[in-house]
Computed example of a mutant assay.
Amino acid sequence: MDQRNGSSFSGFILLGFSDRPHLELVLFVVLLIFYVFTLLGNTAIIVLSHLDAHLHTPMYFFLSNLSFLDLCYTTSIVPQLLVNLSGADKSISYGGCVFQLYISLGLGCTECLLLGVMALDRYAAVCRPLHYTVIMHLRLCALMASASWLIGFANSLLQTVLIFLLPLCGRNKLDHFLCEIPPLLRLACVDTSANESELFVVSFIILLIPVSLIILSYSQILRTVFGIKSAAGQRKAFGTCGSHLTVVSLFYGTAIYTYFQPNNRSAQNQGKFISLFYTIITPMINPLIYTLRNKDVKGAMKRVLWKACDSC
């Protein structure tokens, strides 16, 4: 088999944080705790959204989609990272790397689009409250969510095929903790300017267009909220929309930095730590952000627990 082909060796070595061995044990413990909380928090939202009739609304339909996505996203990355940090094995098979890139990139792209769709939902709820149920009907919600998943994984398939068609000339040391496009591009032994240009255009579409849509939606939301005379109504609107804006800022900010950062050593090292935010930290804090001050979710949790206790 041609030694220039990436599949000619058994896999890749994920260097991860091996240049900072004193941090690996700390990161292992912290990320294990984060992962457990991610599983518990997002599972709780999915279960509550399914069991409580009060949460059978477009907002919680999209939120349960987001929680399921985050569960899959972190699971596609964290177990491999924990093995890497434990020092037992820093390798990943060629097929495993292809699978991880396809799944994690597909889920990441889907989340970008889904957050944009959720901004439209918030716009309809705040700016068109009398027509909300007519505008955001179940069929439209299902269509927008399905389109987000379809586009996200279609783009991931394209990017995965393009990146693994590049000859790697036997290079297999990946300076990252997961298989991601920017570090994989740096392994190629040919000119990657065409791939970088294509990635820039796709990243602009997947990242910046939804961000622009979110900004436009929230500019209209703010105008409407400031027009509400009731202080209680303003607080409720700001509470609901503020949660979404916090998630958007954390996820998009770190993802944009990763895919539009300069290609130098300092940026690469920073990129590994920045990637921790949108791959691990954001999925963990999403449930807290959306539920900590959310009376609907707290009420649903009490009702579900009461029912469980009554049935005992």
Rank of each mutant, 00 (worst) to 15 (best):
D121T: 03
V26Y: 14
A231R: 13
L250H: 13
L48G: 11
Y60F: 13
S193N: 10
A188F: 05
A44E: 14
N42C: 07
I45T: 07
K307A: 06
C241M: 11
G106Q: 07
S93N: 03
T246D: 05
K229P: 07
P262M: 06
H244Y: 04
I103R: 02
F238G: 03
F164Y: 11
L120R: 06
C97V: 08
T282Y: 06
T43N: 09
Y123H: 14
T133Y: 01
L48F: 14
L162I: 11
C312S: 05
C179Q: 06
A154V: 14
L55K: 01
C97M: 00
T38F: 03
L51T: 04
Y35W: 15
S10Y: 10
F177Y: 15
L305K: 10
L55P: 02
R4K: 03
M1V: 04
S91N: 15
I289K: 05
R128C: 08
S86D: 11
W149N: 01
L69W: 07
F251C: 08
Y94F: 14
T240L: 12
P58S: 04
G106R: 07
C109V: 06
F204N: 00
S91H: 15
I13H: 12
I46N: 06
T160V: 04
V47T: 04
Q80I: 08
A232W: 06
A308E: 14
L168A: 00
L158W: 11
H56Q: 07
R139D: 02
T160R: 10
S93F: 02
V190H: 10
F200E: 11
H176S: 05
I274R: 00
F17P: 01
T240D: 10
N264S: 01
F68S: 14
L168E: 02
F99E: 12
Q3G: 08
T74P: 09
C312W: 15
A88N: 06
Y102R: 00
F273L: 11
I289H: 05
F260K: 04
G299F: 15
I205T: 14
L143C: 01
T291D: 03
M118F: 07
D89M: 00
A232V: 08
M301V: 02
M301E: 13
I281M: 01
S156H: 13
Y278Q: 03
S146D: 07
F200L: 14
D19S: 06
A147T: 12
A237Y: 09
I45L: 08
V30P: 04
L222H: 09
R139E: 02
L107Y: 10
H50D: 05
L276D: 04
S275N: 03
K173Y: 06
I221L: 04
F204D: 14
K298S: 10
H131Y: 09
A194H: 10
G87S: 06
T254Y: 03
S249W: 01
S93Y: 09
C97S: 05
I181P: 06
G271M: 02
W306F: 08
S203T: 13
C97R: 04
S217A: 15
L187M: 14
L101F: 13
T192P: 00
H50S: 00
L185F: 13
K90W: 12
N42W: 06
L292P: 11
I228V: 09
L81D: 09
L162V: 13
L292G: 07
G271P: 13
Y132N: 09
W149G: 03
V225W: 11
M118E: 06
A255R: 04
L114F: 04
K173H: 02
C312G: 05
F238H: 12
